[in-house]
């Protein structure tokens, strides 16, 4: 059974959902952006320690609280580590009021019918058990739609909801993320098909089941309004998918009830060499900007 306080926060909280860090494979890139060159660490373990130190510094910044950041999406490695002596998820919720989510997908399969479904997740049940034990509230899994193809979109939604039911069985709230690529010519058509397919799948859920949706900012304002108000949907969050920040914020403002869940690292403008004051000031500005866009909708 999901934590009711966390569910209330997610349903009604003002703010956005942040992506707190990145996967192991892409850590050198994020560290380099943070000002830590590859010669600063000698082993992979040291590299992960450094990235965790950066992550802890972000999570401990005064502005990183539930007042503006209602949720944070963690990678598995982050969930297994600690901040201030607590598991990351427990620290985020108990000390910062931020609802912790876990990214559970293992990458995408090859494109078929204009869409990429998720690769199989054979150890999902074990992962969900660990997540529940660590105090995680929900999960996130991503597929990609590259064309207005009914078969491809149906395959993506079918798989997402099948895995979502598996996750709901563990008492976790799944974030379903069928990303529509923003550069395709028939994006509006793809979004129409996706809306119809998602609605059918949501109507088929049991009355006591709830999911969250993470959707690309649509071409038509308030395109997903019926999903925002659907009884089986706890919250609809938006992903920018490549829109520049200003365009993403203006599109977000046109979609009432939708909050941001930008996957962009919060590390923009941050560096290891900054003083704590500079670091906290910079991240407060970044958080404030995305928060304003989220509540403007």
């Amino acid at each position: 059974m999901p934590n009711q306080d966390q569910l209330t926060k997610i349903r009604a909280g003002k703010g956005f959902i942040a992506a707190l860090d990145q996967s192991g494979g892409s850590t050198p890139k994020a560290l380099r952006l943070y000002g830590v060159e590859e010669d600063a660490y000698g082993s992979e373990a040291e590299m992960y320690d450094m990235i965790h130190a950066m992550r802890a510094r972000i999570a401990q910044a005064p502005a990183f609280t539930g007042d503006q950041v209602i949720g944070a999406i963690l990678f598995e490695m982050t969930m297994d580590r600690e901040i201030s002596g607590k598991s990351t998820a427990a620290y985020l919720w108990e000390d910062r009021g931020v609802v912790p989510f876990l990214k559970v997908d293992k990458g995408l399969a090859d494109e078929e019918n204009g869409a990429q479904v998720m690769k199989p997740m054979p150890d999902l049940d074990a992962l969900c058990d660990r997540a529940v034990a660590a105090g995680i509230f929900g999960t996130k899994m991503r597929s990609v739609i590259n064309a207005a193809n009914a078969d491809g979109i149906q395959a993506v939604v079918d798989q997402q909801f099948a895995v979502a039911k598996q996750i709901l069985g563990h008492g976790l709230i799944p974030i379903i993320e069928p990303e529509v690529t923003i550069s395709i010519a028939d994006k509006a058509n793809a979004e129409d098909m996706l809306l119809a397919t998602l609605t059918r799948a949501l109507d088929a859920l049991d009355d006591d089941q709830q999911v969250m949706l993470k959707l690309t900012l649509p071409e038509v304002a308030n395109h997903y309004a019926t999903l925002v108000n659907h009884p089986r949907v706890a919250r609809v969050v938006a992903l920018s998918g490549g829109y520049a920040r200003d365009e993403a914020n203006s599109r977000l403002a046109q979609n009432a009830g939708v909050i941001a869940s930008f996957s962009r690292a919060l590390t923009e403008g941050l560096s290891a060499q900054q003083s704590d004051d500079d670091f906290n000031t910079t991240i407060a500005a970044t958080i404030g900007e995305i928060y304003d866009a989220s509540v403007a909708g």
Binding site: Q22, S23, G25, E179, S263, R264
Partner: peptide, 16 residues
Amino acid sequence: SDDYLDLDLLDQQARE
């Protein structure tokens, strides 16, 4: 890119 860095896509590309 350095000033955008979408973590989901980074994860996907690192794998693919």
